[in-house]
């Protein structure tokens, strides 16, 4: 494992914190974890990417897939405080225009 995954909170709004390298090797546990949150009733998921050093195309595909499913359920996958490398990668792939991206910090609501 080179990606730490931690889930915070329960109910409608939850957060998942990733730290490390989010690549094809780590896609399954992240996808499974995010889908489980949706299955358990979460609708707004904040995905904290502040400590993610790198995300590859498989990781981006996981985020896109979960975002689309969350929106179909009336919710969203919100990207929280992506690190600079992740932010640049989102811009280069134009995915910054597809996701809701929020700054970190207390008092920042996850809902759109």
């Amino acid at each position: 494992m080179h990606l730490d995954i931690e889930t915070v909170g329960t109910g409608n709004q939850v957060s998942m914190v990733l730290a490390g390298r989010f690549d094809a090797h780590e896609a399954d546990p992240v996808l499974t974890g995010l889908n489980r949150l949706l299955d358990n009733g979460a609708r707004i998921i904040g995905l904290d990417l502040q400590k993610v050093e790198f995300i590859d195309s498989t990781g981006l595909a996981v985020l896109t897939r979960v975002m689309k499913r969350a929106r179909e359920l009336g919710g969203d996958l919100v990207l929280v405080a992506p690190s600079t490398p992740v932010r640049v990668i989102l811009e280069l792939t134009a995915l910054d225009r597809a996701f809701v991206i929020r700054d970190s910090g207390p008092g920042v609501p996850l809902d759109r």
Partner: peptide
């Protein structure tokens, strides 16, 4: 490898994105 398909995802407006101007690093990149 996975293809990235966002064709069916509704794209929020720029205002809704809540984007920040970013760090100094991000500005250097831009």
């Amino acid at each position: 490898m996975n293809k990235i398909d966002t064709a069916h995802a509704p794209a929020p407006t720029a205002e809704a994105l809540g984007l920040t101007s970013g760090s100094e690093e991000l500005e250097r990149y831009r």
